[in-house]
Write a protein that binds this DNA or RNA. Structure first.
Length: 422
RNA sequence: GUGACCGUAGCUCAGUUGGUAAGAGCGAUGGACUGUGGAUCCAUAGGUCGGGGGUUCAAAUCCCCUCGGUCACCCCA
């Protein structure tokens, strides 16, 4: 084979497409019931949008973006995440005048140049949701609880919702000083990554899995103990409203997000079943982002779910999803000269709304039945000379094996009745 | 970007110390059953042994490079 799907990408074949459509449909149904509307943004954007929103020093911007020049030398980037594009679209289209707050959801592919592993691809898909223009902790709780509700609707049970606050820019600045002061004494013991983080963003050290770092950070001052009064009140509010909504969650003081635009509330849904890439969904509040993108001061919050990880989780939990649906009727014909008659029936039944198929590979009758079986056909209609003489066909119930002769003029009605009516 | 393991038919795999082993099962197609599927039996098709180079009389097998996969680090959905 000459060509292959490029590293970290894959084809999504029919069987998986139906599973994806199922989880997508559940998301649509749920999100729209809660007042969220769909949006789709272009796969690429000006590189600058991502650099400024996600943050110059983040891994995504520094080494994971698919960035290229177009034919006029403009730098473009395949979107690595959904929030910045949605914010851009919100501002560009003045969506605040359409609905305020603006509640949106999306289902889009994302691109990151990473080394593929379980639950991590270079092209992957996210189901995401954003609320622009709502400031209070009540909306934070709504966003987190819709995420949890979604998992419940999918019958996922082995997961945990973690919630934290990372403070706003003001309180984070003073906290960062305190954290640096604490880390200074053990600086030599930190791993090289954390030594780098010490300067760039010391809070990220809480994510470090290095044992030494982990134990050092265990005794470090916690952001939750140092946030300003407003952030503290906000966080208490989030927990309060989460309790009202009946959402189960745990507070994880080590939960830090990787994008610069987050502040205050952060949250994550993790599963113990997925290996190293355990976050199925995650998000947070990003109040500074909209102003950073050139809009007026507007609060925002949202999350994204990794579709491939969600599918892995469903697999791990043995949740059975409908895949390729069976056909209602498979039409067989005995002899080439009855093809015309068979096709008339096929078109007629399709017009009535039944899913109908026929053999185009000129198989023997037995071969046609085998195909019917493989397609899980509920009924087979046989067009054959003997019945044709009586303007009739034979109808076989593929489950029971029972057969009956049916007048052609009554065929559609009869089939509609036994398939839908019964 | 780093490391470990792994690439043989559409799928799952077997292939001995390098020496007629290019093989099995499943699947596909056809037949036994000339008008009937899900069972059985038979037959057929399908492979540059991931790719390239090297060692050798001889390479799926040994060596090097490369591409890809898997998992972990890292990062994150």
């Amino acid at each position: 084979m000459k060509y292959k799907a490029i590293k970290g990408t894959r084809d999504i074949l029919p069987e998986e497409m139906f599973k994806r459509r199922y989880i997508e449909n559940i998301a649509r149904e749920l999100f729209e019931r809660w007042g969220y509307l769909p949006i789709l943004t272009p796969v690429f954007e000006q590189t600058e949008l991502f650099v400024r929103s996600i943050g110059e020093t983040t891994d995504i911007v520094q080494k994971e973006m698919y960035t290229f020049l177009d034919r006029k030398g403009r730098s473009l980037t395949l979107r690595p995440e959904g929030t910045a594009p949605v914010v851009r679209a919100y501002l560009e289209n003045n969506l605040k005048d359409f609905r305020n707050p603006t509640k949106l959801y999306y289902f889009m592919p994302m691109f990151r140049y990473e080394r593929p592993q379980k639950g991590r691809l270079r092209e992957f898909h996210q189901i995401g949701l954003e609320v622009l223009g709502a400031r209070g902790p009540d909306i934070d709780a709504e966003v987190i609880s819709i995420l949890a509700t979604y998992f419940e609707m999918l019958r996922i049970s082995t997961y945990e919702v973690k919630v934290n606050t990372i403070g706003c820019r003001k309180c984070r600045a003073s906290y960062t000083k305190k954290l640096r002061r604490y880390l200074k004494d053990s600086f030599e013991k930190l791993c090289v990554d954390c030594q780098f983080r010490y300067e760039a963003n010391p809070m990220r050290a809480f994510d470090c899995k290095n044992r030494t770092c982990h134990s050092i950070l265990n005794k470090a001052p916690q952001i939750t103990d140092y946030v300003c009064d407003e952030c503290q009140r906000h966080f208490e509010g989030v927990k309060h409203f989460l309790n009202i909504s009946g959402t189960r969650f745990t507070v994880d003081k080590r939960l830090v997000r990787g994008f610069d635009y987050y502040e205050k509330t952060t949250f994550e849904v993790v599963s113990p079943l997925l290996g190293a890439q355990s976050a199925i969904g995650a998000g947070g509040r990003y109040d500074p982002l909209i102003a950073d993108c050139g809009g007026e001061e507007t609060p925002g919050i949202g999350f994204a779910i990794g579709v491939e990880r969600l599918l892995l989780q469903l697999e791990e939990e043995n949740v059975s999803l409908n895949s390729i649906p069976p056909v209602d009727v498979y039409v067989c014909y005995l002899g080439e000269d009855l093809l015309d008659k068979a096709l008339e029936i096929v078109f007629n039944l399709r017009e009535r709304g039944l899913s109908v198929d026929i053999d185009y590979a000129h198989r023997s009758l037995k071969g046609q039945f085998k195909v019917a079986d493989r397609l899980k056909a509920k009924y087979v209609v046989v067009v054959a000379p003997e019945e044709e003489k009586m303007e009739s066909v034979k109808v076989r119930d593929m489950n029971s094996g029972e057969e009956q002769i049916v007048k052609k003029e009554e065929l559609a009605k009869t089939l509609m009745e036994i398939i839908h009516g019964g």
